[in-house]
Simulated scan of single mutants.
Amino acid sequence: MGEFIQSKRERHLLTITLDRPEVLNALHAPACCELSRILDDFAADDDLWIAIITGTGRAFCAGHDVKNGFHDPMPPTGWAGLSRRYDLFKPMIAAVNGLAVGGGWEIALACDIVVADENAVFSLPEPRVGAIATGGGARRLPQRVPWHVAMGLLLTGNRIDARTAAAHGLVTEIAPPGQAMAVARRYVDDMLRCAPLSLRATKQLALASVEHNAADVQAMATDLAERNNQTFDNREGVAAFTTKRPPVWRGR
């Protein structure tokens, strides 16, 4: 059993459960490194064909743990072991059982199928704490929806519910309350009727069609994040969040 992430294999399926419910499954650097190792093993294991990612308790993932080593380095594969991982072609399903904000939504955006509990909510609130959605959010959201829809979310940090997300095409299927995993497993059953190598080739081709320059864009994201981390507003945003007060931005 993992310290921050639980994983369970059932024949060709790996279920990955983010397990920090005391902080709504927010991930700090050690949790991201642990998740990265699990995904490394998943990618290398020929007997594992599909993965589901979900969360313990009422949240899927509340994103980056702002109160615990916010600027600590991520693994080489990036945020949650996913944002700089470009060669994982096995199908991945996000069973979004609740809150998916910031890096939590970025994990779902990195998956191929998103099943959302009807009470789930999504947002990318990084600018509200002086940060940037560099874990894949600012890169992937404009690929998924029209520009003005994406920017309306990225530039406000506003939340949307599961039905709004589905209407924008950001959710594959809405599940009744408490049934996200059950619906996700139905997709697993359907995929297991398909040849696993065909699924991987299909995903590889689909990714190439929309993310052919992903490494370059993510390298830009890393550079922007490093520069942003040196600003007054970034330090102010983190301090305001941790002390539960409104931030005072200075634009520097």
Rank of each mutant, 00 (worst) to 15 (best):
K8Y: 12
K8C: 11
L14Y: 01
P21Q: 06
P21T: 00
V23Y: 06
H28D: 15
P30D: 02
R37C: 03
R37T: 07
I38R: 14
L39R: 13
W49Y: 05
W49T: 03
I50E: 03
I52G: 04
T54F: 00
T56N: 08
G57P: 02
R58I: 09
A59N: 04
A59D: 05
F60I: 09
C61N: 03
H64D: 05
N68M: 05
G69I: 08
M74H: 13
T77R: 06
A80L: 04
R85C: 00
Y86I: 00
A94W: 04
W105I: 01
E106G: 04
I107R: 12
L109W: 06
A110L: 00
I113H: 05
V114F: 02
V114M: 06
D117S: 11
A120T: 02
V121I: 12
L124S: 05
L124D: 07
G130P: 07
G137V: 05
P142A: 14
R144F: 09
W147H: 14
V149Q: 07
R159D: 10
D161T: 13
A165K: 04
A165N: 05
A166D: 00
V171Y: 12
T172N: 06
I174P: 01
P177E: 10
Q179P: 04
A182C: 12
A184Y: 06
L192F: 11
A195K: 15
L197M: 14
L197Y: 13
L199M: 15
T202M: 14
T202Y: 14
L207I: 05
V210Q: 02
E211T: 03
E211G: 07
H212P: 01
A221Y: 04
T222R: 15
L224E: 15
A225Y: 11
R227N: 12
T231F: 12
R245D: 11
P246Y: 01
